[in-house]
Amino acid sequence: MRRTLRIYRRSLGAHLRAVLEYEADFWVLIVAGLLFQVLNLIFLSAVFAHVPALNGWSYPEAVLLAGTYGFVNGLGPLFFEGTWRLAGKINHGELDYPLTRPAPVLVQVVSGGIGLHGVGDLIGGGAMIGWGLAHSDIDWSPARIGGALLLLASSATILLSLIVVGNAASFWVGGNHPVFAMTLIRTGDMAKYPLSIYGVAVRATFTVLVPYAFISFFPASWLLDKESAWIGLLTPLVALYCAYLARLVFRHGLRRYDSAGH
């Protein structure tokens, strides 16, 4: 495990150094990520200019929610960017070499790139979280801080796992682009608004079938002591389940891999 982590870290580091060679790109990407979060904020502000609260969520609370989603989403490009290249790799038979190396293929795939716009997402999302927390009424205690961090880590695990699951679908779907993963992850954007504004069907889908609601809504509900806040405490379990699922799906997919040419 430690060895695996070291390989992951080194590979990611090498890609980071490669990206940093292009200084202009670096700033453009970070600003792009930031802009995306600012757009989110503008949209929220527009909505709250007309209503004082959204299904019991005040403006700062909604900002906290959207910020959490944005923050967690920034981790994808930073730490799991390589996953998005899986479809192309499968299509072109580029998993041949990773399969002949003594390191887990998933680790080699996941660490095969880095997207610096994630930094912008982290900064933007982080700022929104900070502002939201400062303007919300939270009864802080050491347990609450620890819980919040655990839920944040869990929510990150869920999103990263979903990225792996979505991209691993390429083992079955084929094609050069991760269409399935794109759809899966972009649908998750709905989770940056309070889940309670949606109908029962959508809520059920996002809670049970694809657990986007556990990325931001349920953890934030727990922190803010909203209705049925206890569900938020299930987030670590959902995270474990998702990580397990990702591993399982990737493994099964890899067995289907039949290279290119013959």
Partner: peptide, 30 residues
């Protein structure tokens, strides 16, 4: 994997965006 070396002439195993030195260092770690 530790016993074998593989070369597919049509394809490279070097990391496309990295200097050769970095690719070799990654293999060293693996």
């Amino acid at each position: 994997a530790r016993n074998i070396g593989v070369l597919f002439g049509q394809r490279t195993q070097l990391w496309w965006d990295l200097p050769v030195r970095e690719s070799l260092a990654l293999l060293r770690d693996m």
